[in-house]
């Protein structure tokens, strides 16, 4: 792992034991397109890392490689000290510890909201039904959709669905949650209700990797901003540094385009 990627945001210059997600020298191609180029990234326990960058820069792909929804061509990814295993039972077990929130929510359409949050607990964690239901209800309460528990996902607004998706991820007691553009498919007025839940999570000390276009969230909740362009990590900095004084031209250009209206 290169010196550049050592956590700058975390105050205590922590040893490797505190590193939860480590990507080293990760490369991935989609055909001729080199979407991830020599990515080195370390995410410490309790850290909130926001990944921003222009469309097609590989940030979603980066996020999806962490729980191996996308395979990588070379390099290594480890979570909590364990390298990502091949597809199979072991990978499934590891994924249970890595929450994922998708742009398009992906709630199980044939299950009620409550069942969505209970399913992983019962089928993967083998929790008994009663405990799973209690936990699901309290999580739904925490994200503010307790009254919708018995509805089907399609009956909920986008913002509500995304909050249920967050509850579903939380139900597994994950070590880290990956957010893949969680607000990009939402109406403007629903974005905030989702961001508030995420901000609360960040305050509670959840380790989060957030791919987003919400600069406000990056400013207020991130420990570190990772700026990607053309498959590379161009810049890593604290939000303050990044937004007030970006070092790279690419980041300056990007920020000038998005912050001016």
């Amino acid at each position: 792992m290169s010196g550049v990627s050592v956590t700058k945001g975390a105050e205590d210059a922590a040893p490797a034991a505190n590193d939860l997600v480590v990507l080293s020298n990760v490369n991935k191609h989609f055909g001729a397109l080199h979407v991830l180029q020599d990515i080195d990234l370390t995410i410490a326990r309790g850290e909130v890392v926001v990944v921003i960058g222009p469309s097609g820069s590989g940030k979603s792909t980066l996020c999806r490689t962490i729980n191996r929804l996308e395979t990588i061509d070379s390099g290594a990814i480890s979570i909590d000290g364990k390298p990502l295993p091949q597809e199979g039972r072991e990978l499934a077990r590891l994924r249970a510890d890595v929450g994922m929130v998708f742009q398009s929510f992906n709630l199980f359409a044939h299950k009620t909201v409550l069942e969505n949050v209970m399913l992983g607990q019962i089928k993967v964690r083998r929790t008994d039904k009663k405990t799973a239901e209690d936990k699901a209800r309290s999580l739904l309460d925490r994200v503010g959709v307790a009254t919708q528990a018995d509805k089907y996902p399609a009956q909920l607004s986008g913002g509500q669905q995304q909050r249920v998706a967050i509850a579903r991820a939380l139900a597994m007691d994950p070590k880290v949650i990956l957010f893949d553009e969680p607000t990009s498919a939402l109406d403007p007025e629903m974005i905030n209700e989702v961001l508030e839940v995420m901000q609360q999570l960040a305050r509670d000390g959840m380790t989060m990797v957030v791919v987003t276009h919400e600069m406000g969230f990056a400013r207020s909740a991130a420990n570190r901003v990772v700026f990607m362009a053309d498959g590379k990590i161009v810049e890593e900095a604290t939000p303050d540094q990044f937004f007030s004084n970006p070092r790279s031209d690419r980041a300056k250009d990007f920020l000038s385009k998005i912050l001016h209206h």
Partner: peptide
């Protein structure tokens, strides 16, 4: 993808 990412097997 959602099912796999909460740890379900194939």
């Amino acid at each position: 993808e959602a099912a796999r990412s909460i740890g379900m097997t194939f």
